[in-house]
Design a protein around this nucleic acid. Sequence first.
DNA 1: TCCATATTGTTATGAAATATAACAATATGG
DNA 2: CCATATTGTTATATTTCATAACAATATGGA
Lengths: 162, 162
Amino acid sequence: MGKSAQVLVNIHREGGASVSDAALSNLIGYNLKRSFNGIYIDLAEVLRPLGLRMITFTILTMLKENPGIRLSNLAAAIDMEKPNMVAVIDELASRAWVTRSADPYDRRARQLHLTETGAALQGFAYAEVCDHEESFLQHLDGDERAQLIALLSKIRQPAGKG
Amino acid sequence: MGKSAQVLVNIHREGGASVSDAALSNLIGYNLKRSFNGIYIDLAEVLRPLGLRMITFTILTMLKENPGIRLSNLAAAIDMEKPNMVAVIDELASRAWVTRSADPYDRRARQLHLTETGAALQGFAYAEVCDHEESFLQHLDGDERAQLIALLSKIRQPAGKG
DNA sequence: TCCATATTGTTATGAAATATAACAATATGG
DNA sequence: CCATATTGTTATATTTCATAACAATATGGA
């Protein structure tokens, strides 16, 4: 009886049991989250040795492309709240990667710029991020990658918004 | 001079200035985050009246499809840490949408089940979520939607992982 | 049968991301 | 000149996400 009980145990164990997520797999939102999480966790490890997080890398890249931009415009451009942006810019400024300089035409505003160090770091980090994406997308050919980006940007704005 | 100064001010104002994110737009990770954020914020508003968040909706749906599943298997299936899952199951149990019952074959484990109320709520919420996705994806035809899901699931697993 | 090892659910804790209210300084437009 | 809006900022709260550790239990080999 000990042995047949053991059999029952094994039958009912869930060990490596298959779990179905079929209902969720139909949903774009679920797929987006899963895919993003995968790439995000991986990317965090690429950026950590450089002292960067995804958000700080994003901001350095935006500043290289938009030198002198204001904090509020930057925050709006990447859908971030201003108070949270202040904290991130503080961090980047304390590392001497970003400067806040006076805007001669509006004394409320500050112009955000990369320092030389910041620009160099951004360049290096961008290359690393591209390499990482390459490994992540190795199962997609050029057409598929372009199509994925096109489809994603198509759903950027929800129906009744604007 | 007052007036020409005014002109300069206007020239240099960034008001609704165009901000470029071209460098980031090349990156799948960036596009994934932006697209997911858009759908997520919207979806949160659909679920809030039902007392649900994205994670609680996800778990109800997984439980309908996998009745009796263990907490650790469920956590693994959706890439969540066990301690975080415990808190969410606590919440769902306190609402009487989910039960933890004894597993007769393993006294460590508990079987997770939807209650009748939980199952009914999941059914209603799932329909609402599908409606929402419909409005979100209205600019994509059937082929494009299928293709997007296919492409997303293709990049689910990074290169050297497993 | 005993014992080392692994698993399950859990507590405690911290870090990071995200959102809101409010404020002083400044700009704008009537 | 004055009402109103904007800019950057502080303070604060919430939610999400990750790690370490633990008691109870199961497993498999000596």
